[in-house]
């Protein structure tokens, strides 16, 4: 469905992604793991159109995403939950959701379905987004992206700074979305979370895709974690 084909991305004169290639199938969860600064977030920004590859191509089915202006990319069905959530903090919960709905001009039924996934937001619709708790903010950021009715969801460290109960909730929703056919690219620092939900894991090292494997293979060979991430896995 999504094909990232040999993209090279630069910040000014500094190359941050080198020949990055992978694909993503419908309903699949691909987790990107790697050290800080390896290029994981840049991959997501390239897919959503915020970073333009100097060479290479990103396509969604027959659509060349790299040829589209950045604001047209989400309209193809790509939802983005940025690192740190980046809610419109001064806007209300309802207005944040409306921003997601506006992009694809969807009606109230989408909003209702999204609120069914996050019932706590229903009680906070008039509240300023910046006053929500960390977990609620993450829910809102995810709900806002889901209002686009995405075929692909890009999640950048969604469990960062959350309590374990909230992490479980977020991961549960990622699993629910898989059942709904939504493919997800998940950038995650918590290896346990990645192993729990991912169908495939891609290790990113120095701007390259170093290796792609299944969670089972990673469980069988934890040395890979030390090699690419510098940590072990609990349990």
């Amino acid at each position: 469905m999504l094909k990232v084909d040999a993209i090279n991305v630069f910040y000014g004169s500094v190359q941050v992604l080198r020949d990055v290639t992978f694909d993503l199938n419908p309903g699949e969860i691909l987790c990107l793991l790697g050290r800080n600064g390896a290029g994981k977030t840049t991959i997501l920004k390239s897919v959503i159109g915020q970073m333009k590859p100097r060479t290479g191509r990103i396509s969604l089915e027959d659509i060349d995403l790299t040829a589209l202006p950045p604001h047209e990319v989400p309209k193809q069905g790509i939802g983005y939950v940025p690192q740190g959530r980046r809610l419109f903090a001064e806007l209300s919960v309802e207005e944040n959701l409306q921003m997601g709905l506006l992009a694809r001009r969807r009606g109230g039924d989408v909003r209702a379905r999204v609120l069914d996934l996050f019932p706590v937001l229903r009680e906070r619709l008039g509240q300023r987004a910046g006053t929500l708790s960390g977990g609620e903010q993450q829910m809102l950021a995810t709900a806002r992206a889901l209002c686009l009715e995405p075929r692909i969801l890009l999640l950048d460290e969604p469990t960062e700074g959350l309590m374990p109960i909230m992490i479980a909730k977020i991961l549960e929703i990622v699993g629910t979305l898989r059942e709904m056919g939504v493919a997800t690219i998940l950038v995650e620092q918590r290896v346990e979370s990645a192993l729990h939900v991912a169908d495939r894991i891609a290790f990113i090292e120095n701007g390259r895709v170093a290796e792609v494997m299944t969670p089972d293979r990673l469980r069988d060979d934890p040395r890979l974690l030390h090699q690419y991430v510098g940590v072990g896995v609990k349990g």
Partner: peptide, 11 residues
């Protein structure tokens, strides 16, 4: 508030 995020929502 955030032009980059707004752009990620089709603005």
């Amino acid at each position: 508030f955030d032009r980059e995020t707004a752009q990620a929502f089709g603005v």
